[in-house]
Design a protein around this nucleic acid. Sequence first.
DNA 1: ATAAACTATTACCTAAGGTGAGTGTCAAGG
DNA 2: CCTTGACACTCACCTTAGGTAATAGTTTAT
Lengths: 245, 245
Amino acid sequence: MKMTVKEVANLTGVSVRTLHYYHREGILIPCEVTENKYRYYDATNLEQLQNILFLRELDFSIQEIKGILADPNYDEMDSFKKQRHLLQLKRNRLDKLIALLDQKLQGEETMNFKPFDMKEIEENQRKYQKETQERWGNTDAYHQSEQKTKGYTPENWAAIHNETEAIYASFVANMDKDTADPIVQDLVVQWQNNITKHYYNCTNEILAGLGLMYVHDDRFKENIDEHATGLAQFMSDAIGIYTAK
Amino acid sequence: MKMTVKEVANLTGVSVRTLHYYHREGILIPCEVTENKYRYYDATNLEQLQNILFLRELDFSIQEIKGILADPNYDEMDSFKKQRHLLQLKRNRLDKLIALLDQKLQGEETMNFKPFDMKEIEENQRKYQKETQERWGNTDAYHQSEQKTKGYTPENWAAIHNETEAIYASFVANMDKDTADPIVQDLVVQWQNNITKHYYNCTNEILAGLGLMYVHDDRFKENIDEHATGLAQFMSDAIGIYTAK
DNA sequence: ATAAACTATTACCTAAGGTGAGTGTCAAGG
DNA sequence: CCTTGACACTCACCTTAGGTAATAGTTTAT
């Protein structure tokens, strides 16, 4: 069920250009990019796109959307609830504007500007964002990551992806060894460097935190275990030993 | 009841920069601009601003808003009715999005993109615009005017205003003469040239149409008669004689 | 084999203001 | 009369979320 850009565009109503843009911005990365740079999208991509459209509807900027969706503790249902609330606020605002218009249709000379006000909505948007940022725990890391990833091109993303996958592969290839084995410990260092290089300064403390998340956060765990069952636990253990020193 | 930019900004929630911008774009011209370029707004300006905010809410561009508000046959009540309809469409759309979100909250895996669709709303916006453009009668003139006035700066507007007022004053000064008097007829020519120079190619046919509007369209009539009671009729008659030749 | 219909990248363009620098103006209090 | 803080002005550059070519490679169907 791979879909081309055009097919996605037709199905969803977003333009091809927008898909290109979302790719470059790193908020919707096609499941497959062939050698000749053709983009192909799958069902997961479509779901992500739907999420993006919801957030866009709520007037979040693309950068903000990136932050929300990249949140390691992102809770879809919780997010939907907040989105619902924001949509309701917007509807209330429209209701007030319609009411004001009705007054004017009655011939009332009303000089009212409150219905145009966006303060309440903006306040809730900020609240939403603040919560996700707090969940990132380390705001410094979050901001660094935001800054760094801002300018990444699709080529950059592809390179990062390859590099990351290579380290994953090495981990898988050494899963029979002890987690304290120097080879495995070196992979942990590579992993840490990879994060620092591409996202944010990954200190030992943060690395320790990540190690714990890899087993306790299902989103992370599932992702990692796709490379090999048990990999998440293995990496987490290896990181634990490394950071304990 | 003159208000400064800041006061208007505080009252309406619109930024000072936006007021500057609306001035330069010619969609909200302060009732008074002092020698040192300070802007002062009155109640009429506020009403106009409210209209602008309504139209902005409906996603009309500033240029489109200019076209709508400059429509010589602009009917406020009719406009409100259409605005109401558009706002309702927007609300319906929000309702659908909320419903979709509710489905997702129920855990349904729905891959629906229709609620994001803007086609219906855009279609109605086009309909709205088309109607006002048609009322301009001469679409060529409308477009010329749109193009020309696009680049006008506040200084341009002030100059045009002065020039126009000067002709009005001359008309007033000669209201005791016959409308066929060469002096009056020359003012008609100046009037025609003024329009051609600043707005669009004002042919004799169009001028004749304007002459009729000056007495039949209350918006025009009131505006003109502010300079002197009976001026609208006087100008209309003079134009009638000129274009009859 | 060729045309139609895709795909890609690059690069420039837009709307509706935001932001900041530098400067002029006004009202109030000392 | 002077100063000071709040306000006013313009100028000029910046931003977002893509739109719109132009140019060129690819796929697919005939």
